Computed example of a mutant assay.
Amino acid sequence: MHAPSLPFTPALEQQLRHWLAEDIGRGDLSAPALAGRRGTAQWIARQPGVFCGGALAARLFALLDPAVTVRLPVADGEPVQPDQVVLQLEGEAAALVAGERTALNLAMRLSGIATATAALVAELEGTGVGLADTRKTTPGLRVLEKYAVRCGGGINHRLGLDDAAMLKENHLAWAGGVAAAVAAVRAQAPWPARVIVEAETDAEAGAAVRAGADGVLLDGFSPERLSALVPRLRQLCHGAAAAGGRGALVLEASGVAPEHLRAYAATGVDLISTSAPVTRSPWLDLSMRFALPMA
């Protein structure tokens, strides 16, 4: 698959420097044992999966020592097998050791997410339904975890509260209902911004469509209920569009057990959102091995 690009924003660069400093502290006390030595090292996959984090590792080592050379025989988003070389390093041995743990930890975490995402995307193959992530991410790692989801073939939902308005149970209760909540947001949001309503009942879903929501997140519905509800919502949307409404409607199912993905895909929804790849995935086992002797 074509790997997405990782945006190295100033904020991300600052995070990378912070993570390096967290591990190195006042200085690596083991560095004198490696003074003046150069070396090469390889990252080895210990289990099958989807690799993610090579571009990030390359940037980390560049921040640590611009003279370190990083080669990426495996691109982010590509499958790997046990004992496969996924990354190669050359440079001052002290720099390679100093960046090893931070870079490996991030890559193993992201590769685990990409691997879990790819497994769920494979379950949906041929259905035309996309797999989207959620905002259930680790604070400080959201951009990277969502990047890993994309490397696994998933779709990113909103990155933050300023990307799109999602009106949930509390919004609807405090605003005085679906129509009032949507109208209040429409009056203030920029025109490209999307408004999504999370519905837990058929009545809330219908009210969201009539209020002109761009999307309805159908939470906790069974496949059987959705199979009956989705056509009604599509019809309601067509009627609203004919009357001068906004038109296109995205229907999304959430609260879906991974083993039931295909049943939900058959209901006619456009997206299935899940936090599972981020919240439940184990790390993919990677290790770094130095080539000896280092002279």
Rank of each mutant, 00 (worst) to 15 (best):
M1A: 09
H2S: 14
P4M: 15
S5Q: 15
P10A: 09
L12F: 10
Q14T: 12
L16V: 08
G25L: 07
R26P: 09
G27T: 08
D28L: 03
A35F: 06
R37D: 12
A41K: 07
F51N: 04
F51K: 11
F51G: 00
C52H: 15
G54K: 14
A57K: 15
R59F: 06
L72T: 00
P73A: 05
D76Y: 03
G77T: 05
G77S: 11
Q81R: 13
L87A: 00
A93Y: 07
L104D: 09
A107H: 08
A114D: 12
T117G: 07
A118D: 06
E123K: 11
E123H: 10
V129Y: 13
D133R: 14
T134K: 00
G140V: 11
G140M: 13
R142T: 07
V149Q: 08
H157Y: 05
L159R: 11
L159W: 09
D162Y: 12
D162L: 07
D163I: 11
D163G: 08
M166L: 05
H171D: 05
W174L: 12
G176D: 03
V182S: 03
R186A: 07
A189F: 06
E198V: 13
A208S: 05
G212Q: 01
G215E: 06
G215D: 02
P223D: 14
E224V: 08
A242I: 01
G244L: 08
R246G: 00
I272E: 01
T279E: 15
T279D: 03
W283S: 10
L286A: 11
M288K: 13
